[in-house]
């Protein structure tokens, strides 16, 4: 397999928060009846986690399962294992009505780090970021681009957007994090 190429070359800029393009990550869309035993078993095998509750993301090491809508999950795995995970999911769900698609190459992942990380998202998304709980994933928009984000660590958010918009998303994140433009200056 050829080396995966990121949409942008790992740009990182120092403002009041650090915005960086994260490395390639395996992402799989799974649609089906999330309450069914077949889906629960398949997700357990793929990520090691249970099927997440509404608006939750459950992580197990580098793998995670995120709730996207009442009938859709996003499965996160290391990039190299995406194809194998898709095959395993399809085999596990054979016979049940479902859809499994490898969307790794359609997405771009960003990390926003630092004490002001929250404020970057506050500027861009119509979301009460301060009340976003640990382990909660929020689908929304960042300026004009659809996105999803969650708290991936202390003072760190991970944001997923469409790869075709990676340049735009990087530009607005970078702009929102510019030095001197914090909403709550320290």
């Amino acid at each position: 397999m050829s080396d995966p190429v990121r949409a942008l070359s790992g740009v990182s800029d120092k403002g009041f928060a650090t915005v960086a393009m994260a490395g390639p990550r395996g992402m799989i869309t799974l649609r089906g009846d999330l309450a069914s035993a077949a889906v629960k078993k398949a997700v357990k095998a793929a990520t090691g986690t249970a099927v997440p509750a509404r608006r939750r993301i459950l992580a197990e090491g580098a793998r995670a399962a995120a709730w996207m809508s009442p009938d859709e999950l996003l499965i996160l795995v290391p990039f190299e294992t995406a194809a194998a995970t898709v095959a395993a999911l399809q085999a596990a769900l054979a016979g049940a009505h479902h859809l499994v698609a490898d969307v790794s190459d359609a997405r771009a992942t960003f990390t926003i780090r630092g004490a002001g990380a929250e404020q970057v998202l506050m500027k861009l998304c119509p979301v009460d970021v301060a009340t976003l709980a640990e382990g909660e994933i929020r689908r929304s928009r960042a300026a004009q681009a659809a996105c999803a984000f969650w708290r991936s660590a202390e003072d760190e958010f991970t944001l997923v957007a469409f790869r075709s918009l990676a340049d735009y998303v990087m530009a607005i994140l970078d702009n929102a994090a510019r030095p001197g433009s914090a909403l709550f200056p320290a």
């Binding site: 509404r54 608006r55 809508s69 009442p70 119509p126 009460d128 689908r139 929304s140 928009r141």
Partner: peptide, 11 residues
């Protein structure tokens, strides 16, 4: 009512 989010009109 599907995801419980208090959504802004622009969403």
């Amino acid at each position: 009512p599907c995801c419980g989010v208090i959504a802004d009109e622009t969403e």
